[in-house]
């Protein structure tokens, strides 16, 4: 259990850094979606399934789509 939590924390940090430093904004948005998904896994491991479902639906699903719409309205490269 502890190993799983540490592993997901490491993946979270890597994806967050990738979202900040990526030159392509679409890649950055996908990295943010992965970050939200792993946050929801962490919520589930810490016995908060309600928050985990909400985080998976909103963080990984809808907000990613809204960022993609925003990129379509503006420019893709930073």
């Amino acid at each position: 259990m502890i190993v799983l939590i540490y592993l997901s924390a490491i993946v979270m940090i890597i994806s967050a850094l990738y979202a900040v430093y990526a030159k392509d904004l679409l890649v950055s948005v996908v990295a943010l979606g992965i970050n939200s998904l792993i946050v929801s896994v962490l919520f589930f491991l810490m016995h908060a399934p309600d928050v985990a479902i909400t985080e998976a639906a909103i963080g990984a699903g809808l907000s990613t789509a809204i960022f993609v719409f925003a990129i379509k309205h503006t420019e893709r490269k930073e």
């Binding site: 309600d50 479902i53 909400t54 639906a57 909103i58 699903g61 809808l62 789509a65």
Partner: peptide, 8 residues
Amino acid sequence: PGGTIIAS
């Protein structure tokens, strides 16, 4: 969450 899933 259910409403958000339907919206997706």
